[in-house]
Each structure stands twice: as structure tokens, then as C-alpha cells.
Computed example of a mutant assay.
Amino acid sequence: MADDSQRDTTGAIGSYTAVGDSLTEGVGDPGPDGRFVGWADRLAVLLSDRHADAGPSGAFRYANLAVRGRLLDQIVAEQVPRAKQLAPELVTFCAGGNDILRPGGDPDAIAERFEAAVADLTSAVGTVLVCTGFDTRGVPVLRHLRGKIATYTAHVRAIADRYDCPVLDLWSLRSVQDRRAWSEDRLHLSAEGHTRVALRAAQVLGLDVPADPDQLWPPQSQRPPSEVRRDNIHWAREYLVPWIGRRLRGESSGDHIEPKRPDLLPLH
């Protein structure tokens, strides 16, 4: 049965491949060179450190195949075969969120396709960690999709049970329900949000982590309602309207984007 408490899977993990969309690519968490970092890259650092401490032979290797905007079927067609070909000891598989956000996205049907991909991956990879959806109750517009996201999350947990996959439960990670865990576009995690997710993923895999991912945020003074309204209007104009426009035109923010780490190579 799947267990998202600590499990000791890290002692022998010497290779890791991340599969998914913008969440796993790291959008919202730019590095000093302008490339996105993200929770998967941060998890890879923690796994690499643990691998070095354990003293096994060979360098820790990491690939990140995720591309922003990808739908589940695209991830399954483009990334899952490559992940199987690379044959790492660990795969993180986070997918389906963009499908849920689309009009008519059926969480039951999406979950059926997600399960088929999990079955395929687990037949070829030692450990497949799966991700649930976020609780969007405090997010403008997306709060209206909370029921669909909750249904999909329940499916993901049931699928994890059936295939004995560890679960990165983002729904229950309270720290990412704070506005400061999200970037200016409110659709992607901030650097601190990605850090919290990486720490939680490491906990799920049994690592000792340097900080509590659910640590409370520092108190904030309450903002005047007029300032909140101005920010909401600015957000709708700068981010929401263009996002809706791309959906209507059948475009994706990931068009012409290639994976940032397509090969399983040493991290350093």
C-alpha cells in the first residue's frame, strides 16, 4: 500500500528522472543564469548529497524531462518512453494538472490515463513517486475548480495504493496555501514554494531534511482592501487574460520548449 510517510528508499538511489509539466520544470523559480530551478532540481541536490553520504560507487545522475504547458497525453507520449529508456532508480511523475484546468477536463477520465502511465513506468523503474494536486481554495478563479482537483487527487492516491508508489501530497502541504508560496502569476510556485515542495518530497523518500516544509510563514500585516483589489486587477490583466487567450487559440507556453536536462548526467 502506498505510504507518503517517510520510507527508506534513499540509500541506493543513484539516478533520478523528473517527468511532468511547468511544476516539475520549475517555472516561477528562476536561477542566476535565467534558467528555472524548481523543486525537482532541489530534490536532486538533496538526493545527491544523501548518495554521497552513503558512499556508493559512481556519481549521482539526474535528468529533468518536464516541459511547461504539457498535457497528460503529451507527457505520456514524449517523456514516459524517454524515462523508461534512461531507466533511473527513481522517477517523479506529476501530470494531469493542465488537463484539469481545461474546459471539460474530466478528472475520472484523466485518472484512467494517468494510471496506465503509472503501470507502464512501474514496470520499468524501481520507484515512481506521484504527485497530487494543490488545494486551490484560496486562489482566485482556480478555487472554482477545487472539486475537480480534489477528485483527481483522490484518484492519484488510490492509484498510488495499487502500484505501491510513494505520494507527494501537495493537497495537504499547508505551507503552499500561503500567497507567498506562489509567484506573481499565481499559477506557479515561487522559489520558496518550490523549496517547500522539494523538502516534502525528500521527507516522503526518507531523507533527513534541513527544514520543516510546513513551517509557518512569518506574520504579515493585513493589506487594505483597495490594495488587494488593485493587485487582483493587475494580475487579471497581466496573467489571467493572456493565459485564457492561449487556451482559446490552442497555444501553449511550452511550444518550442525543449527539456532542460534530457540526459541522465552527473548533477555536478
Rank of each mutant, 00 (worst) to 15 (best):
D106S: 11
D164A: 15
H155N: 12
G96F: 12
S252Q: 15
I75Y: 03
Q203S: 02
R35Y: 06
I257C: 05
A236E: 01
Y152P: 02
R7K: 06
E238M: 08
C165D: 12
S5H: 14
G28W: 11
D212M: 04
G26K: 07
F60M: 01
S15G: 01
V197C: 03
I159E: 07
D185Q: 06
S57E: 13
Q74A: 13
R229P: 00
V27C: 02
W171Y: 11
C131Q: 13
R261K: 09
V118S: 00
L86F: 07
R186Q: 06
I149H: 14
L47Q: 02
R174I: 02
V37Q: 14
G14Y: 11
P259L: 06
T132N: 13
V118F: 00
P266W: 07
W171R: 09
A119M: 09
A66G: 04
G206Q: 10
D255F: 09
L248A: 11
P225Q: 14
L205V: 02
G250I: 12
L72N: 05
A160L: 05
I149K: 12
P262C: 10
P242A: 10
R249K: 14
V118G: 02
G138I: 00
L121G: 10
H256E: 15
G20P: 00
R157Y: 08
G11S: 06
A119Q: 13
Q203K: 08
G250Q: 11
A160S: 12
T132F: 15
T17D: 14
D231W: 15
A40N: 08
L170G: 09
G126I: 02
R196Q: 06
D169P: 10
R70H: 08
T151L: 03
G126P: 04
A201G: 07
V209H: 13
P140Y: 14
H234S: 04
L145V: 12
I75K: 03
I149N: 13
S183C: 04
S172K: 11
S22W: 07
R200Q: 15
L72K: 05
A52S: 04
H51Q: 08
V176Y: 07
T136C: 00
H51S: 06
R61H: 03
S5V: 07
D41A: 06
Q177A: 07
D135R: 11
R223N: 00
S57T: 09
D108A: 03
Q177W: 02
D231H: 14
T10I: 05
Q222F: 03
V76C: 12
W182Y: 06
F60K: 02
V209S: 12
D263S: 12
H51K: 10
S123Y: 11
D208A: 11
G138N: 15
P242T: 13
G14R: 12
A40Y: 14
D73Q: 08
S57L: 06
S226G: 01
S252L: 13
V128A: 13
L187I: 04
I75G: 01
D185A: 00
V130A: 10
Q6V: 02
R196D: 05
E112S: 02
R237H: 08
L168R: 10
I149R: 13
A117Y: 04
V67N: 11
W235Y: 03
P242G: 08
R7V: 00
R179L: 05
